[in-house]
Amino acid sequence: MSNQSESPNPTSSSNKITLKTSDNEVFEVEEAVAMKFCTVKQYFDDENNNNVTSGTSTTLIPLPNVESHPLAILITYCKKHLEIKANNADNKKEMEIDMEHYEREFLKNVMPQELTELILAANYLNFKEALDFFCRAVASAIQNKSVEYVRKFFGLESDFKPGEEEKLREEFAWSFEGVDED
């Protein structure tokens, strides 16, 4: 995914909002995109209320908890999300099909570690659709997988005391039947 997802669109007449990440990268995004991030929207609304006389949108919104890499991906996702919604305004079913297709393709390019970063960023930005989507993606990665697979997938290590894990496995022996091959 490129960092240039905020490429300027000269034909667009909408306002731009500037976001600044924790690693000091600046993203100029369309207002419609930025407003999907509820945290940004809140900040933006507050700024506007405090500063009613200013008609221009020169606001720079700092995002101290979001790094540029996940933000770029989130912006791409958000743009596509809005585009699919606009293209299928009168057909919810079609919209869902398009979205599902896009999300499937999207996940092919996302590493497990990125998924975590994306969840953290989407959570901070309060971008609900993306958060839901990434949580679903993580859940389906875990579904019907062995404990070892889940650990490996997320780079986790067991921190149980000797015997504790064995006890759990014994207690929940029924849940260890028939999991997928690692």
Partner: peptide
């Protein structure tokens, strides 16, 4: 956030996840 994820799993998955860490 983890709860959001866990809420999407069935109880087989949950039981196994409880043995992850």
């Amino acid at each position: 956030t983890l709860c959001m994820i866990f809420a999407l799993l069935d109880f087989f998955d949950l039981a196994r996840c409880s043995a992850v860490c």
